[in-house]
Amino acid sequence: MTAPSLTRQEAEDFLYEEARLLDERDFFPWLDLFTDDAIYWIPIDEHADPTRATSILWDDAQLRALRVHQLAHERNFAQSPPSRTVHSVTNVQVSPGGADDEANVRCNLVVYEIRSGDHRQLGLGDLRPLPAKCLYVLRYEERWRIAHKKVVLINRHMPLVNLSFLI
């Protein structure tokens, strides 16, 4: 299928919509943003082969579905109380993809996350910013979908904490 060329404004609209779905915890439509063969990867070494190196997250379609399913479970203690997030997307750049029906999109992302509950308790009440560079491969399948998503956190070598929400 020949894809229409992706403009920066269209890429921004796409990424803003993904951010909205995540921030509103509308996770099932978020799953539909991905192609069936898409990989979502949060590396530690961004240049490594993910089949052979330590990763923070490596999800195929089934793992994304598992994750969303668990997020909806009433006894998911890592998400009790649940995370509130703001996904802030900037610095969007579009370049040609590796195939006719693909486009590469690079952006910066800062996710702000907090779990309130009884905020005086340890582990709760901390507002945590997670700055990252994101690299997307979007593929045109009647509409633009995510064929690959890579989130490179700037603190990926540091001790991380409960990241049981979606970045």
Binding site: L57, A78, Q121, N162, L163
Partner: peptide, 19 residues
């Protein structure tokens, strides 16, 4: 990774118990 990462489906709940 699926189970025991900080994004995993198992480990973050343990960290929550420790806190």
């Amino acid at each position: 990774t699926r189970q025991l990462s900080t994004t995993g489906m198992v480990n973050p709940s343990d960290l929550e118990m420790f806190a």
